[in-house]
């Protein structure tokens, strides 16, 4: 059990939603309390897969920084799965950049377990985040991107179906990826959180 910041003892009784409400008004104590509540869970989640202390610290710090920066726009229904989803996105990003691939592979090759309630909530959050990011794409671009993503179609197959050139398909997919990532910055998450909230 991690030590508590005793200065904020009166905040412990608040629910996540109440703390988020206070946070949106710039209440740093609410921020600290949320941090206290979840930092360890997030760190361990990342560490078991990546085995790198500094990267895990970066992940937790980056997520909380984004939460602070977007505190006014934040509209999260369930904070715990949301934070879990955020950590998983960050993990994916670090795998992509190459540093911790072997560690992840060693641990993730265990056959996937049956998802329980909490785990389900997390991947559903991830999916929602992606959905919102994509909703910002222009119509045609979104259509092509979705076909590529969901239908496992090759670019040629998509081109044939839509009656456009393969080059166009490739361009649109590139644009879509760039837009989704660009709203974000170096890590997907930035944008995802912002996209999450403009409801």
């Amino acid at each position: 059990m991690s030590a508590l910041l005793t200065a904020h003892i009166e905040y412990i009784r608040y629910t996540d939603q109440e703390l988020l409400q206070l946070l949106s008004q710039g209440d740093v104590k609410a921020f600290d309390t949320l941090y206290d509540r979840y930092w360890e869970m997030m760190f361990k989640k990342a560490f078991y897969l990546l085995q790198d202390r500094q990267i895990c610290k970066d992940i937790v710090q980056d997520i909380f920084t984004l939460i602070w920066e977007n505190r006014k726009k934040l509209q999260v229904r369930l904070l715990k799965p949301y934070l879990g989803a955020a950590v998983k996105f960050k993990i994916a990003d670090h795998i992509r950049s190459g540093k911790v691939r072997m560690q992840f592979i060693e641990r993730a090759t265990i056959a996937p377990t049956q998802a329980g309630v909490e785990e389900t909530a997390e991947w559903r959050e991830m999916h929602q985040i992606l959905q919102r990011a994509m909703a910002a794409l222009p119509q045609k671009c979104l259509e092509i991107f979705t076909m590529s993503r969901e239908g496992n179609l090759s670019n040629r197959e998509i081109a044939e179906r839509l009656g456009i050139s393969v080059k166009t398909v490739e361009n649109q997919i590139t644009i879509a990826i760039r837009k989704i990532r660009s709203t974000v910055g170096p890590y997907l998450l930035t944008c995802l959180i912002a996209a999450m909230l403009n409801d």
């Binding site: 989640k45 998983k88 641990r107 993730a108 265990i110 996937p112 998802a115 991830m126 999916h127």
Partner: peptide
């Protein structure tokens, strides 16, 4: 994809 990746991540955690 999302579901699968999420499950892989969960599998790595006791």
């Amino acid at each position: 994809d999302v579901r699968l990746f999420s499950e892989y991540c969960d599998a790595g955690m006791p």
